[in-house]
């Protein structure tokens, strides 16, 4: 563990990413303390510029709602959707990939064709269709993002399992007569955890972006303040009230960047031999 942290901290970009992430998570957790009022509540006159009034460092939006409050509360929604939909994608992708990789043969063919079928559909278009049909709500958005994000996970896990399956300890497990599920869950999957964590951390970023895009198009949950919603709601006023869209846009940018940097750092730290020659 210490060695892992050492390797991780050797990558300054990853540390910066981690720091930003910790800050975002802290804001999300502390949101009800920082801004106890609902972020939907109009609190000042509309279109107040940043710092024009004490207590409103990011100004107000079209209805006079505090942009800073929206940003902090939006962090909860964006992170929550990012993490939960990634878990959904992992729950679909990991078992499928493991079964395909371990079974081989026609099961592998069938599952991989099924995966490719999903990969051929433009993922954003599929997400839009799913959300539009199922009604824009928290659950349907998480499901839609999960459903369009799992194929890369399945392919990754399948590749890992394929290579692990021929290892001697797996052969030994087969020889002593362990059942297939037991071999998959106790012998093979624990050894694929590292790449899964890495791809998972990167997917959280993608999921936040997807949710933002959906909200931008008006397909977000209308009862939840999210960053994508804020960008979308302010876009028509971009010329005269830039701050309404700008701050949530920056928040999305920084968070996704941080997730990518930290994910990259995790990758290097977890696979020291595979790291790309970083010192």
């Amino acid at each position: 563990m210490i060695a892992f942290l050492k390797r991780f901290s050797r990558n300054p970009a990853a540390v910066v990413g981690l720091v930003i992430l910790v800050l975002v998570v802290a804001f999300a957790i502390l949101a009800p303390l920082l801004y106890p009022n609902s972020p939907w509540k109009p609190v000042q006159r509309p279109f107040l510029a940043p710092f024009a009034q004490a207590g409103f460092p990011m100004g107000t939006d079209t209805l006079g709602r505090d942009v800073a409050a929206g940003l902090v509360h939006g962090a909860r929604v964006s992170l929550q959707i990012g993490v939960v939909s990634t878990i959904v994608a992992l729950l679909i992708g990991v078992p499928l990939g493991a079964i395909a990789g371990y079974s081989g043969g026609w099961v592998d063919d069938l599952l991989m064709r099924f995966t490719e079928f999903f990969q051929t559909i433009p993922s954003f278009a599929l997400a839009i269709v799913m959300v539009a049909i199922l009604q824009p709500q928290l659950g349907s958005i998480i499901l839609a993002i999960g459903v369009v994000s799992w194929p890369p996970v399945a392919r990754l896990v399948r590749g890992e399992v394929l290579s692990l399956r021929s290892r001697e300890y797996v052969q030994a497990a087969i020889t002593i007569g362990q059942s297939t599920p037991r071999i998959i869950f106790s012998q093979i999957l624990p050894n694929t955890i590292a790449p899964i964590i890495v791809i998972g951390s990167l997917m959280v970023g993608t999921a936040i972006l997807l949710e933002s895009s959906l909200s931008f198009l008006g397909l977000g949950d209308p009862n939840l303040m999210s960053w994508g919603y804020m960008v979308g709601a302010g876009r028509t006023r971009l010329l005269d009230s830039w701050w309404i869209s700008f701050f949530p846009g920056i928040a999305i940018f920084l968070t996704v960047l941080a997730l990518n940097l930290a994910g990259e750092g995790l990758n290097d730290a977890l696979n020291p031999r595979l790291s790309r020659g970083r010192k």
Partner: peptide, 17 residues
């Protein structure tokens, strides 16, 4: 469009209050 979205949000907030 946008106007009706903002209006619905404002009414919802009034009623939540």
């Amino acid at each position: 469009g946008e106007i009706w979205d903002r209006w619905a949000e404002a009414v919802r907030q009034n009623l939540l209050d």
